[in-house]
Computed example of a mutant assay.
Amino acid sequence: MRFRRPPAVGVICLAALLVLTTPAHAKTRVDLGEDEVGLSDTLDRYREYRSWKARKNPLVDYAYARLCNVDSQHLESDIDGECSPPNGTVVLPGCDEDEPVMPLWRRTRVTVRSPWSNWEMRIGWACPDDLLPQLTRADFRRLTIEPTATHRQPGARGTVLVNKGIIGWVEPDERTFRTSLLDYGIDVVTWPVEYTWEFGDGHTLTTTSPGGPYPNRDVEHVYEQTGMFTVTLTTVWEGKYRVDEDEDHEWRAIDGTALTTATLAPFEVTELRGHLVG
């Protein structure tokens, strides 16, 4: 992938790597239920830029430009002209086959007639992948994933016999979603990877096989007692996502899993008895 260099005003970084002279910044904590995600200053600044880009506040201006001099008292760019000979080294991030994105600068003024302030670097050199939001486990688990279709043999009209058992299976279909994250359009695809069957008598079975109807016996359980039982299936889902603004349209693995639970209708396990007839 080759990342096209942005124009004077363009896309800003989500998680940019700053040059050596830029100190580490505090993080904003965002409550996502069971998980917390740290949003860096870079992400906050990116959101400010997107807001400005949508509304074009005349008192604020953004531009991309190279960083001239990392050892000077004030960070300088080549926006207003060529850089002076450097007295320090600007370290560019390694982006594999991608071209790093230039730093983003901002200037402000009090009124439309006031002079502009000096340019201030808001985001340093970054890789294109750093400019995209990450779909977290918490985001993944917010999606309403329809549980897998679950079946058993004997079926609802069949008789389940003690010491004979049942066979279970699922339909391991993918689920697709269209959602958004921080105003980015996101495509999500998820699929089942593990199944835990709870048979209602204290026994469980965990497997990666979806099973199948007879003669498949990957998911089989024999009941040793008669009575009413309910089978519950917990499915583990993995997934991938794609961000609209990614020029590569690359699918990225979601770091974490989601769970769904399906409960089959209760059924009775009976004992088959012989009877003498005249």
Rank of each mutant, 00 (worst) to 15 (best):
A63C: 13
N87A: 13
A63F: 02
W105C: 00
S77A: 07
G81I: 08
D35E: 11
R66S: 12
A65S: 14
E76A: 13
H74I: 14
M102K: 01
S40C: 07
H74G: 06
E76F: 02
T111N: 07
D71E: 15
P58Q: 10
T42S: 13
V70E: 09
S72T: 14
S72M: 08
K53Y: 12
T89S: 11
G81L: 09
P58N: 08
D80T: 11
P93S: 10
H74L: 12
D71P: 02
L59W: 11
R107L: 06
E76V: 11
A63M: 03
D96R: 11
V91D: 04
L43S: 02
R45L: 15
L43R: 05
A24E: 08
V112Y: 03
M102S: 04
L92N: 03
L43M: 12
D78T: 04
N69R: 12
E36W: 07
W105H: 02
D78A: 06
W116N: 07
V90G: 02
L32N: 02
E120S: 05
R47P: 04
W119C: 01
A24S: 10
G38S: 13
L32Y: 05
R29V: 14
R107E: 00
D71G: 10
R122D: 01
E82Q: 14
A26P: 04
Y64E: 01
C83G: 02
Y46T: 01
T42W: 01
G88L: 11
M102W: 00
S40Y: 06
Q73C: 10
C95F: 03
D61Y: 06
T28N: 08
S84R: 13
N87L: 14
L32W: 02
R47K: 13
E82I: 12
V30P: 01
A24G: 11
V37C: 05
D96I: 06
D78W: 03
S72N: 14
R47M: 11
L39I: 15
R45H: 09
T89V: 15
W119T: 02
P85D: 09
K27P: 03
E76N: 09
D80R: 09
S72P: 06
V112K: 15
P115G: 09
K27F: 09
W119M: 04
L43C: 09
L92Q: 06
S117K: 09
M121I: 11
S117T: 15
R50N: 11
L104Y: 00
E34K: 04
E99I: 14
R47V: 11
D41S: 13
P58H: 12
T108W: 09
S77W: 00
R47C: 05
V90M: 08
